[in-house]
Design a protein around this nucleic acid. Structure first.
Lengths: 247, 247
DNA sequence: CGAGCGATTGAAAAGACTCAACCACCGTGG
DNA sequence: CCACGGTGGTTGAGTCTTTTCAATCGCTCG
């Protein structure tokens, strides 16, 4: 990190300095998270370049990466852990739009749009995250048509997913949305169990915490899930599919 | 159109042939809709190419351009008129995601993602629309970095907008969402009045038609809007802002 | 061991939806 | 030219889902 932070909106950059330990020495080339990511088919040469420029750190639980309204200075490459991406409604209530897992690159949308972030992101658990500066990232996009196409593809795909998300929000009951959310979360968390606070889960489903808890209880009584203190184990995927209307 | 349609999913291509009159002779170079569009800063040379390849037609009201689940064969360039982009929920109810006006290019998301359409599109009124085949469009993207960057920017911008849309759906009351919708529609329709069926408007707001009608009545009684048979005139923008929570 | 956050439960209120009926406009065909 | 049928718009009443508020519980960390 070569510059002193000026804009206090840009939390991550300041926080980076407070983190326990850097793992900058880890090479992208052997990064297991990379293979499935957008950087999956980037050339060796570019990876070396990336290794030199990136800045990697461990993040504690509940640390913000960036905040809605601030200007992006780079992208975050999630090497391990889970990150929630959310916006805040008028009463300050979070709406979780997406939960990212290892391999995902976070925050390039705002950078490409030239606007401020429209969403915030923060860690849900301890995470290992590499930071790539704006310049470097934009350079890579100019250089690598593979990366560029991958990004366009990703953006388009997400746009489609969000159309479905919107429709679900508008038309499905909370029960149906919860089933849908559990299916998505199952994919994100497996082989582990879903591990979120009730509030985060409620903010993902788009409901009140109390409603969520009542519905979880219903699902438990119907034998669809098991609850271990806070973690949720999916028992009956088919039934969830049926409830969610995913067929 | 050089190929006979094979897949009946691809409605527009078949329908193209049934349309009244082609306006292929119109040059992109002097197209007033183009200037503000993604094609705004494309080079002359490429425009000439486009002129040769594109296929332009008039569409009647309520004609589909493409349908959810089918594979894209090109993009639609909206020269005049309005087009709704929507998905269908499980009960077949439409959720309108976006309403496009002249100058917009429709349907490139699915093409870039390599997936089937996740949304459907159909005209809301008589429209003048040019069709550009997949190959041609992808070529243009490869060639023109201006266009490419414009597209990445557009995709990113929309992704941000959809995050806000999701949050609105999840957290705002129908009254607030209606106010928000009217503000958006005002921008799209001005200087004309908003002209949508009550059902389409309800499907945009994400509510039942009856509820929508009752709220419109409220707004009218509060002096926020005027209703002329079906068209809606905005009287008090500030109040709408306040209700929508847009500040 | 106590503070405090996260989880849970209950009861009442509110918002929105559904269903059913009715109205109004418009184009068509006799 | 008018009656007819149909679509889109409107209204009312009852129901149900979901939220809100308030209170309690329970685990975890210092």
């Amino acid at each position: 990190m070569h510059k002193t932070p000026i804009n206090c909106n840009f939390i991550s950059e300041t926080i980076d300095c407070m983190l326990e330990k850097s793992h900058k020495h880890d090479s992208c080339e052997f990064c297991s998270a990379r293979k499935e990511s957008l950087f999956g088919s980037v050339h060796h040469h570019d990876l070396d370049e990336l290794d030199d420029r990136k800045n990697c750190n461990f993040y504690k639980k509940n640390q913000p990466l960036f905040i809605e309204g601030s200007f992006p200075r780079g992208v975050f490459c999630l090497n391990g852990g889970k990150v929630k991406v959310f916006t805040r409604g008028n009463e300050g209530k979070e709406q979780i739009i997406h939960i990212a897992k290892e391999g995902e690159i976070i925050g390039f949308r705002a950078m490409l749009s030239g606007e401020t972030y429209k969403v915030s992101a923060s860690t849900l658990e301890e995470c290992k995250i590499c930071f790539i500066g704006k310049e470097d990232f934009l350079n890579m996009i100019e250089t690598s048509s593979v990366l560029r196409n991958g990004i366009m593809k990703e953006l388009s795909k997400e746009l489609g997913e969000r159309a479905v998300f919107i429709t679900n929000m508008a038309q499905k009951s909370v029960r149906e949305r919860l089933a849908f959310a559990l299916l998505i979360l199952n994919d994100i968390y497996k082989p582990e169990e879903i591990n979120l606070t009730r509030e985060d889960l409620a903010n993902f489903v788009g409901t009140a915490t109390e409603t969520l808890i009542r519905l979880l209880k219903d699902f438990k009584e119907e034998g669809i899930i098991e609850i271990h203190t806070r973690k949720i184990e999916i028992i009956d995927l088919n039934e969830l599919d049926k409830i969610a209307g995913t067929r």
